[in-house]
């Protein structure tokens, strides 16, 4: 094991001052995602969610911010770590939980599992489990938007690891060449599985600068500051809708739990407990909450109410999944072709 690669922790306080309706929408979106992910984590060991599952706890700010900046009919695509994105885009929660439980009421009727989510009605066109795999597909959606002249935006999420794949460069280049309405969102959580950035990318290189050199506007921000994410995403989306072509946003953040599965794994040696604790102090939910309480935009009761509402919805979704039937085994042998 190579020695550690301290992730870069943004300094300073979150940008406060967003209109309270937006800030509260962001906070609720994050709390809801957190409640879903925590519930999955706490129940995973019951061994009924029998598929690889990648949680976004700690990373909710980016999903919430970008999700709020998009319209329902905009497209979104994502990766193996997709729960937060799907939810922030308005994907059906009970159908997602049922999918993780392998039930016929799941969004893929049990064929896809946690790593393959879809909710076309919410514009969530799919998430897949091969790194970099959905980037060109989202660019293709962007091409279709341009051809059909519909003023939508196609947004794609991917991690820092995906920017190492050739297909990333190929896709971004084509989007830039054709000025396609694509919003690229890189969630830089500093690790690909257990591998820190420093064993994968040259020292000192910035992902957004690299992307910018491919011919599109690219910037970066603190992904744990949901308000800032929202502002940046909204501005980017406005530009894209005006026909200015694709944009690239890199957000730094941190995954709290293990790469795949429900546990904490700071003890196994690829990163330190201290690093995790430093990021935990910058919990995107707590930071926004404190900002709202601090200047009186929200009360404790309101926040408690949000948490209770979210948890009730999540409990309902788990109950739905639990009560749903499994698909008939014969369904495995259907649906290869339309």
């Amino acid at each position: 094991m190579n020695q550690r690669n301290p992730s870069v922790i943004p300094a300073g306080l979150p940008s406060g001052g967003a209109p309270s309706s937006q800030a509260k929408a962001l906070l609720f979106s994050m709390k809801r995602i957190r409640a879903v992910e925590e519930t999955i984590a706490s129940r995973y060991n019951e061994q009924k969610m029998r598929c690889p599952t990648h949680l976004s706890i700690g990373q909710e700010g980016i999903a919430a911010g970008v999700g709020l900046a998009l319209n329902r009919d905009d497209f979104m695509m994502s990766t193996h770590r997709a729960h937060a994105h799907y939810l922030a885009k308005g994907g059906n929660l009970p159908a997602m939980i049922a999918e993780i439980y392998g039930k016929v009421t799941g969004c893929c009727r049990g064929k896809g599992g946690s790593m393959h989510l879809v909710d076309e009605e919410a514009g969530f066109m799919g998430s897949t489990a091969i790194v970099g795999n959905t980037i060109p597909v989202a660019v293709g959606l962007g091409l279709s938007i341009k051809l059909r002249n519909t003023n939508q935006v196609s947004c794609v999420f991917f991690g820092d690891g995906a920017t190492e794949e050739g297909v990333f460069y190929e896709s971004v280049s084509f989007a830039a060449l054709k000025k396609l309405p694509v919003l690229f969102i890189c969630e830089n959580n500093f690790y690909s599985v257990y591998s820190p950035l420093r064993v994968r990318q040259p020292e000192g290189r910035k992902i957004h600068q690299l992307a910018g050199s491919l011919g599109l506007p690219a910037s970066h921000g603190d992904g744990n500051d949901a308000v800032r994410v929202y502002d940046m995403a909204r501005r980017a989306v406005d530009g894209i809708r005006r026909g200015a072509g694709p944009q690239f946003l890199e957000f730094t953040t941190y995954r709290w739990r293990e790469h795949c599965g429900p546990n904490f794994d700071n003890d196994i040696g690829y990163r330190t407990e201290d690093e995790y604790l430093a990021w935990k102090k910058r919990d995107p939910i707590v930071m926004l909450q404190e900002s709202l309480l601090g200047d009186g935009r929200a009360t404790r009761e309101e926040l408690d109410g949000m948490a209770a509402t979210a948890q009730a919805e999540v409990d309902g979704a788990f109950a739905f999944a639990g009560q749903s039937p499994f698909p008939d085994p014969s369904e495995a042998y259907t649906g290869v072709f339309k």
């Binding site: 598929c51 064929k111 369904e331 290869v336």
Partner: peptide
């Protein structure tokens, strides 16, 4: 194996 992609749900891999 059958000429189908492998599904995820344990209900669907039963007998697959």
């Amino acid at each position: 194996m059958p000429d189908f992609p492998e599904p995820t749900s344990p209900a669907l891999t039963q007998g697959f």
